[in-house]
């Protein structure tokens, strides 16, 4: 974990999807058993230009998301590391049972990308806005959710996700995201980064919400609550990750056990105890643990 905060939060030079595509292709070029598949949205996620060059590693399943997840699980059983993609809605809602049984219950190793989740679906409208994807995926004990914030994080995390056995749901917008981290930043799955110190309010954010949270902190400062703390979870807001990141031992990321116990409750508990409006009496020790991971302060 090495956090270098960007000086300003301008949109990055590269689209998130381009970085995703380059990152998985880099793994393929390195000879890793990575396969990339899609449900007719390779053009949308930027993988299509590489398909011709790597026909053994990149293939389309057609508009058949259920089969795509199943095929990926079968490939995983044979030792491959499949990355699947569809829009966030179809990557989760549409294939919940396949993800659960063929993937998580069978303890497979599939990396599922859901793009343009939530309001990122923008002009595609309400039918395409996955607002419940995190809630659904979080309910699956074997699932790790990752929500990269910017292009730097995507680039750093994709190889780590590939090299961490298990089911992953990656949710991210396709376009350019505001830069929060400088090149050279390194992240741990499930580990929080403290982006701004403070004691009045704790804001926990992931992905697109991080820049919003920083702006909210600035507003709060103007209103007099001048010591706000922003957390960002490189491993997303998933319960185990959340607790592991902010628990008594800042390095505790044995999230599997935690998640298997009572995922929903853990998440709520974690948010309540560590972020639920504590003021001066907040868990100082816990903050200290996380602080040490941060070598820069984000400007507001």
């Amino acid at each position: 974990m090495k956090i270098i905060c960007a000086k300003n939060h301008e949109p990055g030079a590269r689209e998130m999807r381009a970085v995703y595509a380059q990152s998985v292709v880099k793994l393929i070029e390195a000879g890793e058993p990575v396969l990339v598949t899609d449900a007719d949205l390779m053009r949308a996620i930027g993988v299509l230009p590489y398909k011709e060059k790597y026909p053994d590693n990149i293939f389309d399943c057609g508009i058949a998301e259920s089969n795509m997840i199943g095929v990926a699980c079968g490939l995983s059983a044979e030792g491959f590391i499949p990355f699947t993609h569809s829009f966030g809605t179809f990557a989760t809602r549409r294939v919940m049972d396949q993800v659960f049984m063929s993937g998580a219950y069978a303890k497979m190793n599939v990396k599922m990308l859901g793009s343009d989740p939530g309001v990122c679906a923008a002009l595609n409208g309400g039918t395409h806005m996955a607002l419940e994807d995190v809630a659904m995926m979080r309910a699956i004990p074997e699932m790790t959710i990752v929500e990269p914030t910017d292009a730097v994080m995507v680039e750093d995390l994709i190889p780590k996700i590939a090299h961490t056995y298990g089911m992953f749901y990656i949710r991210m917008c396709r376009g350019k995201a505001e830069t929060i981290y400088e090149e050279g930043s390194e992240f741990d799955i499930g580990r929080a980064a403290l982006l701004r110190e403070g004691g009045d309010v704790t804001i926990i954010a992931a992905g697109r919400e991080v820049v919003e949270a920083l702006q909210a902190a600035a507003l709060l400062e103007k209103e007099g609550k001048d010591e706000s703390a922003n957390y960002e979870f490189s491993g997303g807001v998933f319960s185990g990750s959340c607790r592991g990141a902010s628990g008594p031992d800042g390095a505790d990321r044995h999230t599997g056990q935690v998640r298997r116990s009572r995922p929903g409750r853990r998440a709520q508990g974690a948010l309540r105890s560590d972020g639920g409006g504590h003021r001066r009496r907040g868990p100082e020790g816990r903050l200290q643990k996380v602080k040490r991971e941060c070598i820069g302060q984000c400007p507001v």
Binding site: V71, G79, Q98
Partner: peptide, 22 residues
């Protein structure tokens, strides 16, 4: 392969077959 939810075993079998070919 783990099965039980009907239809899913077929897809996973095809993934396994593709993996064997690869």
């Amino acid at each position: 392969m783990t099965t039980g939810s009907l239809g899913q075993g077929f897809s996973t079998a095809l993934g396994i077959a593709m993996g064997c070919k690869k």
